[in-house]
Design a protein around this nucleic acid. Structure first.
Length: 135
DNA sequence: GTTGAGCGTT
């Protein structure tokens, strides 16, 4: 008898139905625009997130598609899973992770609260900060 | 236009 109980939140192999689906095994050249063309026929989309590598700026080969309706995401998962896109077999599952946290550079990127453009000292600071390079 | 299992940055 199977005594192990499935967690209500699901796991990596058994994601729960969700508005967001993850698309994996993508070609590096599949863009969000192409994904929109493919997945929009299952229902209205709320958004698409192709995951890019921070260093190279290229796609990491997977993306997240947000549907407005859960039933649409269910159909998309069923029908788009295993389909070929840009010559690659894609895998479609419900997303398990949450939305990405926007990483902060570690330095203050906003505008100064006290702006004194008339100050020559400040203008000198401005010109220097423009050439500032992190790390 | 490398590959290629993966669940999250511009």
């Amino acid at each position: 008898p199977i005594s192990s109980r499935r967690r209500h939140v699901g796991n990596r192999t058994n994601p729960n139905p969700n508005n967001c689906i993850g698309v994996f095994g993508l070609s590096l050249y599949t863009t969000d625009r192409e994904l929109r063309e493919v997945f929009s026929r299952y229902g209205p989309l709320a958004g698409i997130n192709v995951v890019y590598d921070q260093r190279t700026g290229r796609s990491r080969g997977f993306a997240f598609v947000y549907f407005e309706n859960v039933e649409d995401s269910k159909e998309a998962k069923e029908r788009a899973n295993g389909m070929e896109l840009d010559g690659r077999r894609i895998r479609v599952d419900y997303s398990i992770t949450k939305r990405p946290h926007t990483p902060t550079p570690g330095i203050y990127m906003g505008r100064p609260t006290t702006r004194r453009s008339t100050s020559p000292c400040y203008s000198r600071y401005r010109s220097r900060s423009r050439s500032y390079t992190p790390r």
